[in-house]
Design a protein around this nucleic acid. Structure first.
Lengths: 98, 98
DNA sequence: TAATTTGGTTTACATTATAAAGTTATTTAC
DNA sequence: GTAAATAACTTTATAATGTAAACCAAATTA
């Protein structure tokens, strides 16, 4: 088969956006991710949980002054998964095939 | 928002594979697509219907000898949608952001 | 102190994907 | 010549997924 399978965890608009942000930012707070992705808080919370459960990101729940603050970071595993996903995608996007 | 929305019709592993095949092949029969994508006939049938209903491909039901033969071709609309999807995807994949 | 805002989580619903089962016609084997 | 197997799908039922509405707790503002 000429098409490589696409990691279903990353093949999701919002989760991919979150990973994309974290790849280049290395660390980001929940409200920032929410703003950058345009997602609702509920949806974002769920998708962050999934990425975290898969070990693609790590989530630190801390406080900023007296308010809760959720910080996300990408893991090595997440970085590798993202790279593999991009490679797999290429098998679908290359216009000229041999 | 820095991320462009992804056409949900194309953001699907099997439908993307079908479109990818048709982009370069311009015409393909059902069994060939089935073999190339590794999909089950049922799944493929459903996804071809969706692409066809959206006007991204056109489906010709003909006969090869006495057996039915389903031929798929990409439309201009489909080609443009695919190109737009690839462009949109780039907003998620670029590692270095400005 | 009541209302609003911040920063989320939970949950219920709607959509989507997928595979199993079904359909129709055609070969092939006996 | 007819029974079994194959081809080429389609339909449908179920499982998985995505999404938003509702909810919660604490802090701030009016």
């Amino acid at each position: 088969m000429q098409f490589q399978p696409l990691d279903p965890l990353l093949h999701s608009e919002l989760r991919l956006a979150v990973m994309s942000l974290l790849i280049s930012a290395d660390e980001a707070e929940f409200p920032y991710i929410k703003e950058q992705t345009g997602a609702t808080a509920g949806n974002l919370s769920v998708q962050i949980d999934k990425l975290s459960a898969a070990g693609y990101i790590e989530v630190e729940k801390t406080f900023k002054g007296k308010r809760p603050c959720t910080i996300c970071r990408i893991t090595d595993m997440g970085r590798h998964a993202f790279e593999a996903y991009v490679e797999a995608l290429k098998s679908y996007l290359t216009v000229c095939k041999p």
